[in-house]
Amino acid sequence: MFGDMMGMMGKLKETQAKVEATKKRLETVTLNEKSSDGLVEVTITASRVLKEIKIDDSLLADKEQLEDYLILTINKAIDAATRVNEAELAGVAKEGMPNIPGMDSFFK
């Protein structure tokens, strides 16, 4: 019994280390999202840090339109980064979980 618990504790520590390493790696993974017409482009990391915004000069004349473009494109980038982040971390967590009946349904 105690051997099983010690093994599980070791596996948990190993999984925590893998999760931390994955989080660190996700800081270097970048995603680019563009507005539907390509006038605004946003670069964001998978850890959801905004790195760059490119704006076509044609949008500079209309503040409200520019604000709308920025909101839509940044939200699109955040959604994409969140999906990548969650998928990567869930994969690491699932990989490190002991085989407990019924637990696999938590990761679907």
Rank of each mutant, 00 (worst) to 15 (best):
Met8Glu: 05
Glu33Ser: 15
Pro101Ser: 10
Ala87Cys: 07
Asp4Tyr: 10
Asp56Gln: 00
Val84Trp: 01
Arg83Leu: 11
Met97Cys: 03
Met8Cys: 07
Phe107Ala: 03
Leu70Cys: 07
Ala61Asp: 10
Ile53Met: 09
Lys11Ser: 14
Asp57Gly: 08
Ser35Glu: 07
Ala81Ser: 08
Val19Met: 14
Lys11Tyr: 04
Ser47Leu: 05
Leu70His: 06
Ala80Arg: 08
Lys51Val: 09
Asn75Ile: 02
Met103Asp: 02
Glu27Leu: 14
Lys11Leu: 14
Lys63Ala: 15
Phe106Ala: 11
Phe107Met: 06
Thr82Leu: 12
Leu60Gln: 07
Arg83Ile: 11
Glu20Tyr: 01
Val84Met: 08
Gly102Leu: 07
Leu59Asp: 02
Asp37Met: 07
Leu66Gln: 04
Lys23Pro: 01
Ala61His: 08
Leu12Asp: 01
Ser47Gln: 03
Ala87Val: 06
Met97Leu: 14
Leu12Arg: 11
Gly3Ser: 14
Glu14Asn: 13
Asp57Leu: 06
Arg83Thr: 13
Met8Ala: 14
Ser35Ala: 11
Lys18Gln: 12
Tyr69Trp: 10
Asn99Thr: 13
Glu67His: 11
Ile55Cys: 13
Val92Leu: 07
Phe107Leu: 07
Thr43Gly: 07
Asp56Thr: 02
Ala21Thr: 04
Asp68Trp: 05
Asp104Tyr: 00
Met8Ser: 12
Leu31Lys: 00
Ala46Pro: 01
Val42Gly: 00
Asn99Phe: 04
Met9Phe: 13
Glu33Pro: 04
Gly7Met: 07
Gly91Ala: 10
Val84Ala: 14
Asp37Trp: 06
Asn75His: 05
Gln65Gly: 08
Val29Ile: 13
Glu95Gln: 15
Pro101Leu: 09
Leu39Thr: 00
Asp68Glu: 14
Gly91Asn: 15
Lys13Val: 02
Leu72Ala: 15
Asp104Phe: 01
Ala93Pro: 00
Leu60Ala: 05
Met6Arg: 12
Asp4Cys: 06
Ser35Pro: 09
Lys18Thr: 02
Lys51Ser: 03
Ala93Ile: 15
Asp56Lys: 01
Asp62Ser: 07
Ile74Arg: 03
Ala17Cys: 01
Ala21Asp: 06
Phe107Asp: 05
Gly38Asp: 07
Ala90Trp: 05
Asp57Arg: 14
Ile44Gly: 00
Asn99Ile: 11
Ile53Phe: 05
Thr43Asp: 08
Lys34Cys: 06
Glu64Phe: 04
Ala93Tyr: 07
Leu39Trp: 00
Glu64Pro: 04
Asp79Met: 06
Gly10Pro: 05
Thr73Asn: 10
Glu27Tyr: 00
Glu41Leu: 03
Ala21Gln: 10
Thr30Ala: 08
Asn85Leu: 08
Leu89Thr: 00
Gly38Arg: 12
Leu70Ile: 07
Gly38Leu: 10
Ala61Arg: 13
Ser35Gly: 10
Glu27Ser: 10
Asp68Asn: 15
Pro101Gly: 08
Ala46Gly: 10
Glu64Ile: 09
Asp104Asn: 04
Lys94Val: 04
Gly3Asn: 15
Ala46Asn: 04
Phe107Gln: 09
Leu26Phe: 00
Asp62Leu: 12
Met5Ser: 11
Gly38Thr: 12
Leu39Pro: 00
Lys51Phe: 06
Asp37Gln: 01
Asn32His: 12
Thr45Leu: 13
Leu60His: 03
Thr73Arg: 03
Asp56Cys: 03
